[in-house]
Amino acid sequence: MIQWIKKLLGLVRPERITKEKIEELPADKLCRKFIDGELASDTECEAFGEIMCAVELDAEVNNGGFNQYYYNSGGERAERARSTFIRLGENRVADVVKRANEQYAACRDELHSVWDGTMKGFARSYKKKYFDVFDSEYYALMKNEKQLYTLIGTYIKQHPQEFLTEKTE
């Protein structure tokens, strides 16, 4: 509990990501520590932003489907999320995201007219069932968050040079 409070107050510095850490941690734990900021490199990691696009999409879709994802994000990072799934080797998920993105583009104006900023408007948009098939496909492919964390952690293990700085190699 004390460690969590210190972290919240910014009194705990993240540990540097090293080859040793990448090798020793299980893939899902490596990912979790990386995205939680417990492991950090000396410089801004370009891959981090890409990975977070997929993590955000996954969290939103698992919480309320693609309808909620587009409502909350406007789809701004949806293409980057799709590219990240490709980068992680999950082409089937990338295809679901691609088709959901295309559906969103096709019905964006209608959705925005229903999404009037109220909970009632948001709830009404689910009745259109624009994304139900994509939600079902996504859930069938991505059974839980540990699966995504394992994909990301495995990617980190396979491409450590993207996460390490010259000083840590």
Rank of each mutant, 00 (worst) to 15 (best):
Leu88Ile: 00
Arg99Ser: 02
Ala78Ser: 15
Leu141Ser: 10
Lys6Pro: 05
Lys19Tyr: 10
Thr165Glu: 08
Tyr138Thr: 01
Asp135Ala: 08
Leu39Ile: 03
Thr118Asp: 04
Glu38Met: 01
His112Ala: 09
Ala81Leu: 08
Gly117Met: 05
Glu38Ser: 00
Arg13Lys: 12
Ala40Met: 07
Glu23Arg: 14
Phe48Tyr: 14
Tyr130Gly: 00
Asp42His: 11
Gly75Trp: 02
Val61His: 01
Met142Ala: 00
Tyr155Ser: 02
Ala81Trp: 04
Ser41Asp: 08
Asp28Pro: 14
Phe134Arg: 00
Gln68Ser: 08
Glu56Leu: 09
Ala27Trp: 05
Arg77Glu: 08
Lys6Gln: 12
Cys45Leu: 05
Glu46Leu: 11
Gln158Glu: 14
Ile156Met: 15
Asn72Ser: 15
Glu15Gly: 06
Ala54His: 01
Met1Glu: 12
Pro26Tyr: 06
Gln68Asn: 07
Tyr104Trp: 11
Arg87Leu: 13
Glu162Ala: 06
Thr84Ile: 08
Glu110Ala: 11
Lys33Leu: 11
Tyr70Glu: 05
Ala94Asp: 01
Arg108Lys: 13
Val55Arg: 02
Trp4Thr: 11
Asp95His: 04
Arg124Ala: 13
Lys7Ala: 14
Gly10Thr: 10
Thr168Met: 12
Val12Met: 10
Leu30Ser: 00
Val12Tyr: 02
Asn67Ala: 06
Trp4Val: 09
Arg32Lys: 09
Lys128Ser: 14
Leu57Glu: 02
Ala140Trp: 01
Leu9His: 08
Tyr130Glu: 05
Glu79Arg: 09
Arg124Val: 07
Leu30Gly: 02
Lys6Arg: 13
Leu151Tyr: 10
Lys129Arg: 15
Pro26Cys: 05
Asn62Ile: 03
Asp95Arg: 01
Ala105Phe: 14
Thr43Gly: 01
Ile156Phe: 02
Glu50Arg: 11
Ile156Trp: 06
Gly89Ser: 10
Lys128Ile: 08
Gln147Tyr: 09
Asp42Phe: 06
Thr168Arg: 13
Thr154Ser: 09
Ile86Lys: 06
Glu76Lys: 11
Leu11Trp: 15
Val96Leu: 07
Tyr126Leu: 10
Leu39His: 02
Lys98Thr: 01
Ile17Arg: 04
Cys45Gly: 00
Glu110Cys: 11
Glu102Thr: 05
Gly153Val: 02
Gly37Val: 08
Trp115His: 14
Ile17Leu: 14
Ile2Pro: 05
Ala105Met: 14
Ala94His: 06
Gly121Cys: 04
Cys31Trp: 05
Thr43Gln: 06
Lys129Ile: 10
Tyr130Thr: 05
Phe131Thr: 04
Val55Gln: 07
Leu111Pro: 05
Gln158Asn: 12
Leu141Thr: 08
Tyr71Ala: 11
Glu44Lys: 07
